[in-house]
Design a binder for these strands. Sequence first.
DNA 1: TAGGCCATCTGGTCCT
DNA 2: AGGACCAGATGGCCTA
Length: 331
Amino acid sequence: MAKLYVKSKDLVELVNTPSWMDKGLGSQNDIKEQERRPGSYGMLGTLTEEHDSIEEEEEEEDDGEKPKKRGPKKKKMTKARLERFRARRVKANARERTRMHGLNDALDNLRRVMPCYSKTQKLSKIETLRLARNYIWALSEVLETGQTLEGKGFVEMLCKGLSQPTSNLVAGCLQLGPQSGLLEKHEEKSTMCDSTVSAHNFNYQSPGLPSPPYGHMETHLLHLKPQPFKSMGDSPFGSHPPDCSTPPYEGPLTPPLSISGNFSLKQDGSPDLEKPYTFIPHYTPVSLSSGHMHSTPFQTGTPRYDVPVDVTYDSYSHHGIGTQLNTIFTD
DNA sequence: TAGGCCATCTGGTCCT
DNA sequence: AGGACCAGATGGCCTA
């Protein structure tokens, strides 16, 4: 077991140093993580046992005492094959770990551009995705209407479909005034809000929002206001957050979509939550002069997500706004 | 203690 | 053949 552990460690270190290693989650921590999780690398131990048992089987087969099994003949697990298999498996595990770390990095970066970011109380993955969707929706509103959102409506938008704790967290964040550190986000690398404070001091309840005006939106809207694009390659998040550790995305950009294309809107501009969510990309003619635009279009007119999802408010939203929310996330 | 969340391992499938 | 991606299984940690 210990032997295998060392082997795995070496292999892990052979993997290209990903960004999570730069951030102090280096291989040492990874190994510690493994130590903390005996089940994980223990699997290799299992493999070893398997290995042994296979060899025993081979020996038995050699003895010829066991009745022959029907079916496709299993390729004999020679020692060399076993070695190769194990090496392949260990390599694949390392790759998978790296891949998942990358995924988590991306999720972390997503958390950072969310209106509510706390180092101390991280949003769960699913809540991050939900909040992100709501946030995009809110930003779309700002872009489309050209006006800043009213506090209450904004908080409600952000909290749709979120769990009660997350709703509290978000609402608490937006309730905090500039003096509470919201504006310091760019200066201090840490938090946009301290969730521990917000969670304790603020109990967001969807319908009966506390007054007076919902938090201090200006600070958040600084974050929200559409930034002038210098070129097509610039994203509104281009400089945000400044301490973003992941290198800027250099891949092909998503073709511009009509703002209203992603949400079915009612006449008053609010999302029509009765309709199933359908993703219909709309092309907006743009100049490709910047050279950044990805020329391969989406499958125009072909809904990519046509999953009718019922996301009625769950038990979390105890007061139940009574709204139905369509979401791309199914639980 | 149950449930939620998470990291990891693993085997299968698809693609290059 | 090997890598990417995925989903299921497993086990640890944390919190209500």
